[in-house]
């Protein structure tokens, strides 16, 4: 499968160095985005979603320490490439739409300037780049795009700004589009509009998409595969169909139970389940979900479960799972390359 994956993250571990100690944001996380598919990432806030996708473009903040693993984008290990090679890859092979459109655009440059700048690789006249930008703005539903190019980000509403951010990402026509909760910072109506836009664009955009969202309904609708993150580790992954119809991990089950309409309903927030998110300052002993798990038993507190996958790539990290899952051995080891040499984060 990895040969056909545009993004292949294996055994990624990330700590944040903070005054209070090390935050273990990601522990041995693996994730694949097969070419042409849409993969969703779901998890409570603080579960490491943003860290994971920022690592995909090595955009982590300076206090992040990559402990090990690899991030292979289009066949190249992002974590070990030179800053120049990294810069060449960003915006060409993959781009990102960030969570909060009120801060993700430069406030003192017109959006036209910003949209022209990101085309700096193309050797075409500026007027042509401007036309392209206007066309893309029209596509994402910005009225009167030719004049609006001369406006600054603060002259647009939040929803419009997110449309612009999406237009910018699409303008690069990347192999992989990464979106980090693109609707979370918006109000309900704006969110509905952006969701509508995403639906529309999905059919036009031919690259792969890695999509982080709280919105289970949207994930179910847009994605082919889903990865459930819990406390910095993958709790469950699988195809949307398998995972939503036959959730294996008690955490996934709890999430879906809270969401009565299941796949149909578009819910704004991830369902809340009882209990607290674990403190990531201390590496959990045993299963991280154990304190909140309704099915917890003695072994869970002692031993961390490994991700066990079946032949369809549906896997869950739970001690109960081997009994449920088919006897077939998973197509790939869920752990393994996680013990690679530590990679120094490189400031670029």
């Amino acid at each position: 499968m990895s040969a056909g994956a545009v993004l292949d993250i294996r055994g990624l571990g990330v700590d944040f160095l903070t005054p209070r100690g090390r935050v273990h944001a990601l522990r041995d996380v693996s994730l694949q985005v097969p070419r042409g598919s849409v993969v969703g990432v779901v998890g409570e806030s603080g579960s490491g979603k943003s860290t994971l996708i920022l690592a995909a473009l090595r955009l982590l903040p300076a206090n992040a320490l990559i402990l090990g693993g690899e991030v292979v984008l289009d066949g190249e290990d992002v974590l070990r490439m030179s800053p120049a090679a990294l810069r060449d890859l960003r915006g060409r092979k993959a781009t990102m739409v960030f969570q909060d459109p009120s801060t993700s655009l430069n406030p003192v440059l017109t959006i036209g300037r910003q949209m022209i700048d990101i085309q700096y690789r193309d050797r075409v006249p500026t007027a042509r780049k401007r036309d392209r930008a206007a066309t893309m703005l029209r596509k994402v539903g910005i009225p009167d795009p030719a004049t609006r190019l001369d406006n600054y980000p603060h002259e647009f509403s939040g929803g419009m700004r997110q449309r612009i951010a999406i237009a910018m990402a699409l303008l690069c026509n990347p192999d992989l589009l990464i979106a980090d909760e693109p609707t979370t910072a918006l109000d309900v109506t704006m969110e509905a509009q952006i969701i509508h836009l995403l639906r529309q664009l999905k059919s036009e955009f031919h690259g792969s998409i890695l999509f982080v969202s709280h919105n289970l309904g949207l994930i179910a609708e847009l994605c082919d595969r889903v990865v459930i993150l819990y406390a910095g580790a993958v709790a469950e992954e699988g195809s949307v169909h398998d995972l939503f119809h036959r959730p294996r991990h008690p955490y996934t089950q709890a999430l879906l139970e809270c969401d009565p309409a299941r796949l149909a309903k578009v819910s704004r927030e991830l369902p809340t389940i009882p209990g607290d998110v674990p403190d990531l300052l201390a590496a959990p002993v045993g299963c991280a979900f154990a304190p909140r798990c309704p099915k917890v038993f003695e072994r869970c507190r002692r031993e961390a479960p490994r991700l066990v996958a079946d032949g369809d790539g549906h896997g869950a990290a739970c001690h109960l799972v081997p009994a449920i899952a088919s006897s077939r051995v998973g197509p790939r080891p869920s752990t393994g390359s996680g013990r690679g040499p530590p990679v120094e984060p490189v400031e670029t």
């Binding site: 473009l57 890859l89 915006g91 990102m96 960030f98 801060t103 430069n106």
Partner: peptide
């Protein structure tokens, strides 16, 4: 955040 955006586009 916007500087991160600029970098995400490989400027």
């Amino acid at each position: 955040s916007h500087v991160r955006t600029a970098r995400a586009f490989g400027l």
